[in-house]
Design a protein around this nucleic acid. Structure first.
Lengths: 338, 338
DNA sequence: ATGAAAGCGCTAACAG
DNA sequence: CTGTTAGCGCTTTCAT
């Protein structure tokens, strides 16, 4: 309409409403003791001016930002999205928002992201994974806010942990196959250094096989994370070509496992008749594809709600020692395995 | 280690380095004219103290936040994630970060989110979708920052637009089927008010069918967005039961379309022999499932890169009029249709 | 190349 | 219930 006037401030609202800026400030909070009459006059004035509260100023003065920083590897992953949802709901009661950043599965990117996030002075920070660059670790240790590592069980946590051992989880799957008499088991994925959880899963596979006295040499690389369905299919193709007597294959995630299933479909390889296939994550696709996919459910939302509760306990001073909360994945037996 | 000392400030760094706070401030920027000697002394002092730059203060004083707010319906959607990626890359050259919020496909939630985001004073705001509550519209109009609506073609845009007509996109699919002689076409999804894009797609379906002189009464509801694979499967079940002579079905998204495909698999219904199935989005699954899925590719990343370029042009003053950039979806013919 | 003074818009702290 | 004063930690502006 008019000239691009400057954004109105509390002082403008105060002037129009005939009160002091302090009263406007109080009117914009919940618990503030402002008379109903004054408050509505203020809100009306604010509305007339198109005033929008400036949280940059509020944050600086009050030294509180009311948000929790969260890093996830990718914004396009149903598991991490569920963890964020759990966090979000658990924190919203306390008026805490979430500031989300994604690392692209790269701990160097994570370091940059952590610094960016800490510059905004979050009340707490939640990380996916327990491996960080040395500098990232130092930043976190110095931050003097609660630090929660999730989806992992680091040997030396920075602070609190809500997670599980990826190696132990895959061991569960190996044990399951071995208990049904299967011995020639392959693993797809987890070759890239970047994917710390995938690497842990592969290490768990090797350890478990070795303990069972079985060969752990059927390892099929499948590219850098996030490992796609296509990469799972390609890896399955190589496995079927090179090691056709394989009885079962454990994939680093449900997405690659589904790709593997489609490769079997295309080749007319019967699953689980000729080969059993397992994934990780219990994504929606695992329960609806044909055959449905045997997998491990890591309870992503539970991880989020537990982390949220932990943050509130720490901020309230109810939790002073570093906590380690284990949310153990559960085997989901379905039709892709015998 | 020691008592939880206060977070160090620039003044602390300045004292330790023996310079003024102003010089520290300059040392932390790129183009600042600080001697190499001084700069390294400052950075070392900062490191010793574990200093982390406080952007809340910087933002307030400089009246610049260097971030762009982005709202997406869900953090777990490969299409929106790709748009964010395109935005992210396009803005990073200019040092602009992205602050992401999700609306859960709800325009009331969007209104709350927009206000939260505007309080943080973003340099621009990118929205998914072109339907907003009246208050959200007012907030956006008053914000005096560039507003970009995406993934839609609103009749009366708030500001700039980078998107396409969802109705026209579905018309493309209907035309395709009709051109191959198919007449009894159904539509799955888009019944909920909440899903504005889904509703637009359904409306486009009805309009296109009507124009072809065909019946547009094969409409199968599939729940609220995000419509799951399971809901797609259930809807397909109902369609096969109630309208078994249907020749083709267009699903509101690839995910529901894949669910529909699995239902056909479970029932032994041949696709595309007995029925053709189409989706929307060209998600990865569309190209790998068996049979692969005929769908529309909306070029999500392109939407993001175009929006990023537009934002930079507007901020630079190279673009003063509201722009409307159309990124038209493209038909991907695959094996789920004849 | 560096410094001093002032102030961004809000709210803690202390009145009354 | 409302107001006054001061200042959060930076950076703009003007010096030198």
């Amino acid at each position: 309409m008019s000239t691009p006037r400057k954004t109105p401030t509390m002082a403008d609202v105060a002037r129009l409403a005939g009160v002091s800026p302090m009263t406007v400030s109080r009117a914009f909070k919940q618990d503030a003791s402002v008379s109903e009459h004054t408050r509505s006059a203020i809100l009306e004035a604010a509305d007339r001016l198109g005033y929008v509260f400036d949280s940059t100023a509020s944050n600086l003065r009050s030294q509180r930002t009311d948000f929790v920083a969260v890093t996830i590897p990718s914004i396009n992953n149903a598991n991490f999205a569920d963890t964020v949802r759990g966090l979000s709901e658990g924190l919203k009661a306390r008026g805490l928002q979430i500031l989300l950043g994604y690392t692209d599965y790269d701990i160097n990117e994570e370091e940059r992201l952590i610094e960016q996030l800490l510059r905004r002075r979050p009340e707490a920070i939640v990380l996916t994974g327990g491996r960080h660059t040395p500098r990232a670790r130092r930043l976190l240790e110095n931050a003097s806010i609660p630090v929660i590592e999730t989806w992992d069980l680091p040997e030396t946590p920075v602070g609190h942990v809500v997670g599980f051992s990826n190696a132990a989880a895959v061991r569960t799957m190996v044990d399951h196959f071995v208990s049904t008499g299967i011995e020639r088991i392959a693993f797809i994925g987890g070759d890239a250094d970047r994917d710390t959880r995938g690497t842990d899963r592969r290490a768990g596979f090797i350890a478990a096989m070795t303990e069972h006295g079985l060969q752990a040499d059927r390892l099929i690389a499948a590219g850098a994370p996030p490992i796609s369905m296509r990469e799972g299919a390609d890896a399955m193709g190589r496995l079927l070509n090179d090691l056709p007597d394989t009885q079962a294959v454990i994939c680093v995630s449900d997405l690659s496992a589904f790709g593997a299933l489609t490769e079997c479909q295309r080749r007319g390889v019967d699953v689980p008749g000729q080969i059993s296939v397992a994934g990780f994550g219990d994504y929606e696709i695992a329960n609806i594809c044909v055959p449905s996919l045997t997998t491990l459910n890591p309870f992503p939302r539970e991880i989020g709600t537990r982390a949220a509760k932990l943050i509130l306990d720490v901020l309230d001073g109810h939790q002073t020692e570093p906590a380690t909360i284990i949310v153990a994945p559960e085997l989901m037996r379905r039709h892709s395995s015998r």
